[in-house]
């Protein structure tokens, strides 16, 4: 599965980058959300994949060897929450931007005007 997941992550990153390069500010935010997803998945996959053995200690002999690595999961949880905060902020920022400037065209952001 690693190979498929790698492709999936590549596709997600690619999509995110493509969306970030659009002129519409909505797509920009979408791109940020995609980046977050792609990265969560990347942390998950890069840390090693273990099927169906969540990291709860149940006093089963030998469980520790089979168990999924809990650390990447903890990292992802932290990362998800952080990107939730930042993305929510970005969303409101975009909203505020639109209500002040009445445009969604990023090309009108030029600072040399």
């Amino acid at each position: 599965m690693l190979f498929l997941f790698a492709i999936l992550i590549g596709v997600l990153y690619g999509a995110a980058v493509y969306l970030l390069l659009r002129r519409n500010i909505f797509k920009l935010v979408l791109g940020l959300i995609f980046l977050g997803h792609a990265t969560n998945l990347l942390l998950f996959v890069a840390g090693g994949l273990t099927r169906g053995f969540p990291s709860f200690l149940r006093d089963i002999p030998g469980e520790v060897e089979k168990m999924a690595d809990p650390l990447p999961q903890a990292l992802i949880l932290t990362a998800i929450v952080i990107s939730l905060g930042v993305t929510a902020f970005a969303l409101v920022l975009v909203y505020r931007f639109y209500s002040v400037t009445k445009t969604v065209d990023l090309d009108e952001l030029s600072e040399n005007e």
């Binding site: 690693l2 790698a6 492709i7 590549g10 997600l12 990153y13 690619g14 999509a15 990347l42 890069a46």
Partner: peptide, 22 residues
């Protein structure tokens, strides 16, 4: 053009994940 850039970025991320995961 953007699709090309996107696939470049997606591509290297893919390779890096493959390297790390394997």
């Amino acid at each position: 053009r953007d699709a090309l850039i996107a696939s470049l970025v997606g591509g290297f991320m893919m390779v890096l994940v493959l390297q790390a995961g394997s």
